[in-house]
Design a protein around this nucleic acid. Structure first.
Lengths: 334, 334
DNA sequence: GTGAAAGCGCTAACAG
DNA sequence: CTGTTAGCGCTTTCAC
């Protein structure tokens, strides 16, 4: 019932607590015999170190905060997986907070994590600039901040993990062109998200190269949910703008687009091809299965965790930007 | 940079740490004047209590473990939201672990949480019986275990939160019957999950009532992913078994079924109606939108958190089972 | 109404 | 190689 402590072991073995501690920590300054006795007893009595005591002692909470804009899609869960891969074996706890795409909630979450005294925060933010002051504040408190996917606008000196949005967007759009599409719509999310612009740049560059760029084909959704996708494609159809394919900023936008098109008896990909950018399981869960730029989310999580550890170990370590390679996956929608 | 401690305040105000502590805790044994000075200074200097120290002192980690089988669907995230609603304002941390539908990983996760010294664990398990010994062990350590959604088989004395699977399954199947369907297939998941059987019972009962039960129409998928849904419906078609509708155990199974049917040019719902049981956003993200039994996931999370708190406060509190009401939501797939 | 001292579980000087 | 002591930040007796 009650947890066994070092003190219990010390009484039981008639050794000082320090010796027990040393033996447990595999300190060389312990007689082999003694160490064996201690380890045996610890095992038999089911000794488990009290992490709270360790935290207090070391001044580190051994806790990492994870802040994400949403958990409706598997996106964040995938990244979390990667973070857990690295951090759980090291005895770190991970605390997750969801911001619901609301900078104000994100703000609260960050404050909460500060109270929790986390050793570092890994964050995918929901608005480029809104919370810059808090990011600064957190970092001022000596808590490393690692960004992934969506970055803050102002070039804070932070470590980050991203994919090369622009290039991969180009390649995906080029894929559409090569399959004979000419009127390619880019459905973008809110421009308060850096990647939205990055992917647009890639889109624009390749279309210009092929001499088929038409700025009327860039349209902006008010958000990034399936519902937003439905709304924006409806508007597009209502305006009678001609198009033969869609490049959507996210899987969810693409799903909304596809749903609405299918309802209108538009055939995918025969009449309209659809491609997106993301990398979640969603793209292979829908009908038709969605061609998409697949980000290595789990790996990104692992990398982010490693960057966090670097900063924890040495708070003056230089910030690093890791750019990972995303993969184009062609499915039935194109 | 460095966190302000009670000691800092004590030096600054020339008061003992005990007085500071008392003032901060709104103990009556403090002069109003003094309290005001302390509170002011604490605020100005940005004092934040060190939760780790509090934990060590109180013997409670103020941390709750959350164990889920998967985070691909928004199911767990929704429940988590509810848990956070209750627990974050109270200063509790929440640690999440994913079991990937693998009892062995679940086992590891539980052990991890025990190491983390959590005050309670809220769990949605992945196999009815496999880890019973660990559940017992955890409870033996005085850590309350709260189950939701999927329960352990052996009737452990634990608090739990569920919906009335059987009744709602009946109602959903009756909805299919009332829209003219007669050959209704139940696609079930692994029977190592209690709800699978529960929902089957509901399905069976109503079909028998209408005198159209045919046990050949109960088929079992090997898992619960979209892919499993695809495989099982393919088998069904290959076997040339006649059917006009599907009641799927989960949203993901239903999605796999729908995808495959659509690929085979089967019309939904004209040729085959599809309904499922779950309650995640997925059902309105797919085409056609999926009729589904919607569970009040966020509320379930809140309830589970409350049950956990009850047990934390008074470890001898009686276990409670909360049965929540699920709602039938009719969409385009039926 | 306030302070001194002990203790939560552990590690890390410092002695010996 | 082992033991003693102090201290991480906080609350909580026990004195005064």
């Amino acid at each position: 019932m009650k947890r066994i402590t070092i003190k219990d072991l010390s009484k039981f073995l008639s050794l000082s607590t320090s010796t027990i501690s040393r033996a447990l920590l595999h300190d060389k300054n312990v007689n082999d015999e003694t160490r064996k006795r201690v380890l045996d007893a610890a095992h038999k009595m089911g000794y488990k170190p009290n992490l709270t005591a360790l935290s207090l002692q070391s001044g580190q909470s051994k806790t990492i905060g994870f802040v994400v804009p949403e958990m409706i899609t598997p996106f964040s869960a995938k990244v979390l997986k990667g973070i857990q891969n690295i951090l759980y074996p090291l005895g770190y706890r991970i605390i997750i907070t969801q911001s619901d795409e609301d900078p104000l909630i994100e703000r609260k979450n960050l404050q909460l994590l500060e109270e929790f005294n986390v050793d570092a925060i890994i964050i995918n933010l929901c608005h480029e600039t809104y919370n810059n002051d808090i990011y600064q504040h957190i970092m001022g408190q000596g808590i490393p901040l690692i960004f992934f996917d969506r970055l803050p606008h102002q070039s804070l000196d932070v470590s980050k993990v991203i994919v090369n949005d622009s290039i991969k967007a180009s390649l995906m759009v080029e894929h559409l062109i090569k399959t004979g599409r000419k009127r390619i719509v880019y459905i973008m999310g809110p421009t308060t998200i850096r990647n939205v612009t990055e992917r647009m740049n890639g889109y624009k560059r390749i279309l210009m190269k092929y001499n088929i760029f038409d700025e009327n084909l860039i349209i902006q959704a008010n958000g990034m949910t399936v519902q937003h996708g439905r709304e924006i494609i409806k508007q597009l159809l209502d305006k009678n703008i001609e198009f033969d394919s869609i490049f959507a900023f996210s899987d969810t936008l693409a799903m909304g687009v596809m749903n609405y098109l299918l309802e209108q008896k538009v055939r995918i990909p025969e009449d309209v091809a659809v491609a997106s950018f993301s990398g979640t399981e969603l793209s292979s869960m829908v009908y038709p299965q969605l061609t998409s730029v697949q980000q290595p989310l789990e790996k990104m999580g692992e990398k982010a965790a490693e960057l966090a550890l670097e900063k924890i170990k040495d708070s003056s370590a230089a910030s690093r930007s890791v750019i990972m390679d995303a993969e184009l996956v062609y499915r039935a929608s194109t």
